[in-house]
Each structure stands twice: as C-alpha cells, then as structure tokens.
Simulated scan of single mutants.
Amino acid sequence: MTRRKWALAAAAAVSLVGVSAAEAKTVQFSGCTARGVEGGCLVVRDGARVYDITPARPRPAVDRAIAGTGTPFTGPSTCMQGTRLTHISWHYTKMLCPMKKRERG
C-alpha cells in the first residue's frame, strides 16, 4: 500500500513540474503603457494584445513606450484586463505614443 501511495505522489509531482514548465514561457512585448480599468493597474498595449504589467518594479510611466519580457500568470488578478505578467523586465523605447484627447470641462 505504501508503494502505491509513493507512486501516485511521484506521478503527481512529475505532472505538476510539466505544467509549471509549460507555463514558464516568456513573452516579449512592446507598446504604450496605459492605466488599467481598475484603480492602480497598469497595462501595455502591443497591437491587439493587452498585458497587465502592474507587478513591474520599477513601474514605467503612463503613456510611455516600453519594450520588455514577462512570464504569463494564470492565477487570479484584481486588474481583470489583459494577460497578467510576472517576472517583468522592461526598458523605455524611442517609439512615440499617441496623445490622448483632453476632455473639455
């Protein structure tokens, strides 16, 4: 009975390692930063893709062009917008971001 438990535990451990290795793929992004729909969230728009880069430290400025890499995170997020990235490395680029229209009040 003990051997069976050890075999099941070993099989479960191997399957978990396989899942984490598959999730550990790094993605590259480049685009303009923007405030997320939730307070305190920061996203970068890379074409049609949106990445949640809220965990980035240091935090890039809003409405600036950046490029970098990150690891997709599949767990829950308070930002609820785009693919959340962890282990983010970024730098500013020379690309210009479009100016936002100011509201007249």
Rank of each mutant, 00 (worst) to 15 (best):
A56F: 09
S77F: 13
A22I: 10
G47F: 04
A22P: 00
T33F: 01
A65W: 05
L96K: 13
S89Q: 15
R49P: 00
D63M: 10
G70R: 12
S30E: 11
A61Y: 11
C41G: 01
A56P: 04
R64Y: 03
E23M: 06
A67P: 03
G40F: 10
G75V: 05
M80D: 11
A21I: 14
T54S: 14
G39L: 14
V62E: 12
Q28W: 02
Q81F: 04
F29T: 02
A65Q: 07
T33R: 08
T26Y: 03
L42N: 03
C32G: 05
P72W: 12
G82Q: 09
C41K: 04
K94G: 02
E38S: 09
G31K: 11
R59N: 04
G75C: 03
A24Q: 12
V43Y: 05
A56I: 11
M95P: 00
P76Y: 15
T74L: 12
R84E: 07
G47V: 03
R84P: 05
C79V: 05
V50I: 15
T26Q: 11
P60Y: 12
H87R: 14
S30T: 13
S77D: 15
T93H: 09
T54Y: 12
V44I: 13
L42V: 14
G47E: 02
R49C: 00
H87Y: 07
R45V: 04
P60D: 06
V43P: 00
F29R: 03
R35C: 00
L85N: 09
P60L: 08
D63C: 02
C32Q: 03
A56S: 13
A67W: 08
A48K: 15
D46S: 14
G70P: 10
V37D: 10
V27G: 00
K25H: 11
F73M: 01
V43L: 12
D52F: 08
V19T: 09
C79W: 09
K25E: 11
K94D: 11
R59Y: 06
S77T: 15
M80H: 15
A21S: 13
C32N: 05
G82N: 10
T74H: 14
A65L: 01
I66Q: 01
A67S: 15
T78L: 08
F29H: 06
V44T: 10
I53M: 02
G47Q: 02
V50W: 00
S30W: 01
M95D: 14
R57A: 08
R35P: 03
T54R: 08
A24K: 13
I53W: 04
A61V: 13
S20W: 14
G70K: 11
L42G: 01
R49N: 11
P55W: 09
V62Y: 07
G68N: 08
A24S: 13
A61R: 15
G36W: 07
V37H: 12
G40E: 10
R35S: 09
Y92I: 03
G36T: 06
